[in-house]
Design a protein around this nucleic acid. Structure first.
Length: 638
RNA sequence: GCUGCUGUAGCUCAGUCGGUAGAGCGCGUCCUUGGUAAGGACGAGGUCCUGGGUUCAAAUCCCAGCAGCAGCUCCA
């Protein structure tokens, strides 16, 4: 007899050599049916695994994260079998799970097209309905290599695999794949699935290697969950800032300048509201503002290190036979400004902010609306300080960053620390000191963080700040980078208390990162229905008929004078059409005025997204609207 | 940059077998003067992405380029 300990602490006597599946059956028929795998002493295994000794045991179902991944991984195998049966010359490479699904990389010269997906899915359904057992077979590494001789991909996989035992899984009509497992017990347990897309992917992600086809699929425990997921994708599509940006006339792109955004008048209103707010915060946190040139002499970029470490991303030009570069970052220009006067320790920390427009040559395939462009404006700043001020300054920046995100309605952040990359300047000691300083600040603020090894900027380590939007998509916004190298390269100095010239430390920071990207993120977060304080047109007066045009114009004038962005619709449309149009343009408030309102000197206010209206005086409305703008709320109700 | 797909009116998209282009929305004019999610009539608007090729004839077929889209790699 053996004894297993279940997750709730209870124990179960079982016959020696019973499988995990049999334990599940002992616990309950429902669990046995739902089970896809088991965890024996925290190790995930197949349900068919015999139990030895007296371990802890947990039955894994697709309700667990682990179970879901196992189900998806098995689904990837079923998809692989389907593809192999349709294209027998297919060579399988690697098929892992990813967030929300899985993919399988295959080597097949004939391109798989979206038109082929229904065929693949149909074959997968056949395989799933057959509900064939998925069987594990183990052999030694040597045997496995022999078995797969001539298959460069799988041979490579074996060589990368850990341990001496190599396992294969097979199911159905002779389909077999090298795989660590575990897998669901049979092909019927791969959930509700759908092939999503196909795209190219390099072998090992290495651009010098062969381009493979990566077929993406998703699978969920139930049809309902699959549909919910597909709806979520639809929702993301509905919020696409590129589409909304065009519909709401906020920005555009032209073939005349790929990756260079045109911000339209309405987009500029949002932009300027954001900038005004950031300026206000900069003042609060003790920053001064500067502005530095877009184009500067090549010599500057050699000195800063950009020439050696960033040249592929830069644009160059010539002025009077002299080489110049378009700035990809604001820091070198800022250093020149710093050097225009002699500085005392009394001035430090010197915090200089700049809404700096930078140009970076991004690869043509990576551009994506406002999220990835070749010209963008950073809400940048550089803090020049003494070494003993570093931690306090970093904490100050962290406070500023969190205050900003909360004001825009983002409450869910996560933080990453990136360390020394291969391509870097400065000594190892400098890097260690800088990295330790960043970690110390994070610990002081008790902020949990993830480490990204080798992901720092070429001049220093960095802390990156990510926010999650309403669809729980993650976006990188802010960054804090600690830099001991640039001040040395530019021979920046300050006079210390002892009258000696010393080198300041430089902290690079951006809060929103890129104004363009942030504008795009806001559009998606609010699906274009921006909070009142950001809305390009905050109110629109809608007339019932021409008879009250005069009163309507007076109302508009009153609201405009009070500082609200107020439009008016005097067209000879019916009121229903005007309301529909205003809703389409996502105007927060509509004020319907007709003879009734004109007579009583009131307005009938209707909110975006609501069917109701309320009749109030213009003054009442103004007071509420002003208050909502002041607190930057997204809630329109009053 | 790489792989695949796409490119027709301001926008979203039809366009059959190769025979010189259509709809809806939007825009303009007029009619309509109305009460909370689209009233009616008429009209203007197109280098069918660009350049080659095949053909009596190309939006349509072929090639190249450009741009966009989905990914890969990279990144704010």
């Amino acid at each position: 007899m053996a004894r297993v300990t279940l997750p709730d602490g209870s124990t179960l006597e079982i016959a020696e050599g019973s499988t995990a599946k049999q334990v599940a059956e002992r616990i309950g028929a429902g669990l046995a049916k739902a089970a896809v795998a088991a965890k024996i002493d925290d190790k995930l295994v197949d349900l068919s695994t015999p139990i030895a000794n007296s371990p802890r045991l947990q039955i894994v179902t697709p309700k667990d994260k682990d179970g879901l991944n196992i189900m998806r991984h098995s689904c990837a195998h079923v998809m692989a079998e389907a593809i192999c049966s349709l294209w027998p010359q297919t060579r399988l490479v690697y098929g892992p799970t990813v967030e929300d699904g899985f993919y399988y990389d295959i080597d097949l010269d004939e391109p798989i097209r979206p038109d082929d997906f229904p065929r693949i899915e149909a074959r997968m359904r056949e395989i799933a309905e057959a509900d064939k057992p998925i069987v594990r077979r183990e052999m030694s590494r040597q045997e496995a290599l022999e078995e797969l001789k001539g298959d460069p991909y799988k041979t490579d996989n074996i060589q990368r695999a850990e341990g001496d035992v190599i396992s294969f899984y097979s199911h159905g009509n002779g389909f077999r794949d090298l795989c660590r497992g575990p897998h669901v017990p049979s092909t019927g347990k791969v959930g509700s699935f759908k092939i999503m897309s196909v795209a190219g992917a390099y072998w090992h992600g290495d651009p010098t290697q062969k381009m493979l086809q990566r077929v993406y699929g998703t699978s969920w425990p139930t049809k309902k969950e699959l549909d919910e997921y597909l709806n979520r994708l639809e929702e993301a599509k509905r919020r696409d800032h590129r589409v909304i940006g065009r519909q709401l006339d906020l920005f555009s792109f032209s073939e005349m300048g790929p990756g260079f955004a045109f911000i339209h008048p309405k987009g500029m209103i949002v932009w300027n509201e954001i900038v005004d707010f950031m300026r206000q915060l900069n003042r609060k946190y003790g920053y001064k503002e500067i502005r530095t040139p877009i184009i500067l002499n090549e010599e500057l970029w050699r000195r800063s290190g950009h020439w050696d470490h960033y040249k592929e991303n830069m644009y160059f030009c010539e002025i009077d036979q002299v080489g110049y570069a378009v700035k990809p970052m604001n820091c070198p220009g800022g250093c020149l400004l710093y050097k225009t006067t002699k500085h005392s320790y009394r001035e430090l920390p010197l915090r200089l902010a700049e809404f700096g427009m930078v140009h970076r040559h991004e690869a043509s395939g990576v551009m994506h609306g406002l999220f990835r462009v070749r010209q963008f404006t950073q809400d940048d700043a550089h803090i020049y300080c003494a070494p003993n001020q570093i931690e306090a300054e970093i904490i100050g920046v962290i406070n500023l960053i969190f205050e900003t995100y909360r004001a825009f309605g983002f409450e869910d952040f996560n933080v990453e620390l990136s360390t020394k990359p291969e391509n870097h300047i400065g000594s190892d000691e400098i890097w260690e000191t800088a990295t330790n300083a960043l970690e110390a600040a994070l610990r002081h603020k008790q902020i949990p963080y993830k480490i990204n090894e080798g992901d720092g900027a070429f001049y220093g380590p960095k802390i990156d700040f990510h926010i999650k939007d309403c669809l729980s998509r993650s976006w990188q916004l802010g960054t804090i980078q600690l830099d001991f190298s640039m001040p040395q390269r530019f021979e920046l100095t300050y006079v210390a208390e002892d009258n000696a010239e010393k080198t300041p430390v430089m902290i690079h920071r951006a809060v929103l990162g890129s104004m363009e990207r942030f504008l795009g993120i806001l559009i998606e977060q609010y699906a274009g229905a921006l909070p009142l304080w950001l809305a390009p047109e905050q109110v629109r007066v809608l007339t019932i008929s021409e008879k009250t045009n005069e009163y309507a114009v007076a109302v508009q004038a009153k609201l405009s004078e009070a500082g609200l962005r107020c439009g008016i619709d005097l067209s000879d449309e019916k009121i229903g059409a005007k309301i529909a149009k205003s809703h389409g343009e996502k105007i927060p408030y509509m004020m319907v005025v007709g003879p009734k309102e004109a007579e009583s000197n009131m307005v009938s206010v209707r909110m975006r997204g609501s069917q109701d209206s309320r009749t109030v005086s213009v003054e009442q409305f103004l007071a509420r609207a002003r208050q909502k703008i002041a607190v930057k709320t997204a809630d329109l109700a009053f």
